[in-house]
Design a protein around this nucleic acid. Structure first.
Length: 592
RNA sequence: CGGGGUGUAGCUCAGCUUGGUUUAGAGCGCUUGGUUCGGGACCAAGAGGUCGCCGGUUCAAAUCCGGCCACCCCGACCA
């Protein structure tokens, strides 16, 4: 590109600091909110000139956004290296056959992006890389002497999401740090896992994020244990619970519930009695019709566990947690039964099933057993039973924690209370075990020459989400409030009047001195009014602002202001750069 | 995939119901000149649009009808 063309208005600028002068870089700020942006991070990232959308779920990172992204990448890379993980770079295009080997070609379904090459061969755009690393390892690692090893990469992933949304929070193309550990046995896996877990804590601490670590379901990736790193935000897509008293926290998909359920008020019905409830099949309809509370009702759901029908009882105001159900039953596949099956096993249409007289394997949530007199379906169309007493009128085969936790439930670990929160998932660590190594034949030979599948773990971080999550939790009415560690630049030098030569000389000097001290600085050399520049400064949210104005200069002073603080302070001109530099250094120190 | 919404200038939107005085508009942004200059200034003159695409109705379509596409929202789904 020709840099000497029409844009070189400021002739004194060399190419070397182009990115450091506002007039020479590209920061397209917007005064108005973009119509499509719903959440704060999306709105502000667009308005502050960090990103622009190309299609649904794919964004261009502009210079400011890219700088912040690079900051996050750098922190992640430093901590991965420090934890002893080895950086590699795997391809984004994978042969479909590799995915068919593990069965995930089918499991991933439409989320997998597929392309055909010129020969007609089917390729997959990698949504994650278990298959590819495991293929690498099976071909090149075969001895216990080569273990343990952790590989990681920072690479673009592709997932054809059913619904990309919330700006950079859920996209079809995104940057992910994915790491994979390989160990000889579970104790060693646990060590690798712990190492990654600690590295994640350091990464997110350094980013300045406030996060909680929650116990999580491992999802379709499989495995036995997993934790998610969540940034609490009302706009987050994930629901989780957090104990008010102890450190217990879990994704809602996983959250256990303590035994402290309080029984609902008893009905006035002591005897079992059949009542006519024409056309009332939902909890809402029946409780309204019979003038009872939903929590006095017993909801009877017929599930198919690996094809076998089972009855699952929960209180009317509760929901079944299918993950818990699957685990309790030891089943691999759980689904709600179809209407035909329900008619066949209960003798009634959907909405009238009940435990009394039901000849089926029956599981009940603990809260159900505390109902002293309840309402439930009569296994007969248009009839319900009232005065139902667990133990007397039915006896489940098993009582367990089967429901989705809700706000106010008791903590499974202490006597505290669980609170429902929303969060943004920024990192996830899993113990995979041998799921992939067994399928792909990634084995090692032990000291005795015996072959075993390698024990794996996998560890992901959504790099783009780090930025979005930070902004989502750190902004005000004026704009973004960056942490020092992720900010695209650390200091903004803002001369108020670029036409004043002496003032500009001072600004340039402070700017040079800051650069010499290794501080990342942006000089707002635009010929614009003060208010305009202040508003843009607040919008892009650089941590420290140095304002050089005529009045201050007459007193020999410049103004320093932290973006996150309301008050500014003045320092003598000659100390401005060193003071700003030391402020930044100590702020960085606090995050390290 | 189901339901809803929106596509008009770089951005935010009006105009569409009731087709023709609209030669397609406003504000912001952009260009030029001037006045201003510590919290999104003012005046003047400009540049910028196949009204998402294709077809239909009509003497006449941004406006009515049909189809398609894109984007957004709710749900389902999902790291």
């Amino acid at each position: 590109m020709d840099t000497c063309g029409s844009r070189s208005v400021n002739k004194k600028d060399g190419a070397e600091d182009r990115a450091l002068r506002w007039t020479q870089t590209f920061i397209p700020t917007l005064k108005e909110d973009p119509a499509e942006a719903q959440v704060p991070s999306h709105r502000l990232m667009v308005r502050a000139g960090l990103i622009r959308q190309l299609v649904a779920g794919a964004y261009t990172y502009l210079p400011l956004g890219l700088r912040a992204l690079h900051k996050a990448i750098r922190i992640v890379r430093e901590e991965m290296d420090r934890a002893g993980a080895l950086e590699i770079l795997m391809p984004a295009i994978h042969p479909a056959e590799l995915w068919q080997e593990t069965g995930r070609f089918a499991d991933y379904g439409d989320t997998l992006m597929k392309v055909r090459d010129r020969k007609g061969a089917l390729l997959v755009l990698g949504p994650t890389h278990e298959e590819v690393v495991t293929d690498l390892v099976r071909n090149h690692i075969n001895s216990y002497r080569q273990l343990p090893v952790i590989f990681y990469q920072i690479q673009t992933k592709f997932r054809d999401e059913p619904r990309p949304r919330f700006g950079v929070l859920r996209t079809r193309e995104f940057l992910m740090k994915d790491a994979y550990s390989f160990d000889v046995d579970v104790p060693h896996l646990n060590q690798s896992y712990e190492r990654m877990y600690q590295a994640y804590c350091r990464i997110f601490d350094r980013c300045g994020l406030k996060y909680v670590v929650v116990e999580a379901e491992s999802g379709p990736i499989g495995g036995e244990a997993s934790h998610e790193f969540m940034v609490l935000a009302d706009t987050g897509e994930d629901a989780l619970v957090e104990c008010e008293r102890c450190r217990y926290a879990a994704n809602l998909e996983r959250a256990e519930i303590g035994e402290g359920d309080t029984p609902p008020p008893a009905l006035n019905e002591k005897q079992l009695r059949k009542v006519h409830t024409p056309g009332r099949s939902t909890i809402e309809q029946v409780s309204g019709f019979l003038q009872c509370l939903p929590q006095q009702m017993i909801k009877t759901l017929i599930y198919l566990a690996d094809g076998e029908p089972v009855a699952v009882l929960v209180r009317g105001d509760h929901e079944v947690n299918e993950n818990k159900l699957r685990r309790v039953l030891g089943a691999s596949r759980i689904e709600l039964a179809d209407p035909d099956t329900i008619q066949r096993v209960t003798g009634a249409p959907v909405g009238f099933a009940g435990p009394t007289g039901l000849r089926l394997k029956m599981l009940a949530d603990r809260a159900v057993m505390l109902i002293s007199s309840g309402v439930t379906g009569a296994n007969e169309a248009d009839y319900h039973l009232v005065g139902v007493q667990p133990g007397r009128d039915f006896q489940p085969d098993r009582v367990a924690d089967l429901r989705v936790a809700s706000d106010g439930d008791s903590c499974p670990r202490c006597s505290g209370t669980l609170r429902l929160r929303r969060g943004i998932e920024i990192g996830h660590v899993f113990k995979l075990g041998t799921k992939y190594s067994a399928k792909l034949g990634a084995n090692y030979l032990d000291e005795k020459g015996q072959s075993h599948p390698i024990i794996m773990g996998c560890y992901g971080i959504g790099i783009n989400r780090i930025l979005a999550a930070l902004i989502e939790t750190s902004y005000d009415a004026k704009g973004i409030i960056w942490s020092v560690s992720l900010a695209p630049y650390q200091v903004l030098v803002l001369p108020l009047n670029v036409a004043n030569a002496e003032l500009m000389r001072t600004a340039e000097r402070i700017y040079r001195e800051l650069m010499e001290q290794g501080i990342e600085v942006l000089l707002d050399d635009r010929d614009a009014r003060a208010g305009f520049k202040f508003n843009d400064a607040d919008l892009i949210g650089l941590p420290l602002r140095v304002v050089i104005g005529e009045k201050g200069l007459q007193r020999g002073e410049v103004e320093l202001k932290w973006r996150h603080q309301a008050q500014s302070f003045t320092v003598p001109v000659e100390q401005a750069a060193s003071r700003a530099a030391s402020e930044i250094r100590s702020a960085l120190q606090r995050l390290a």
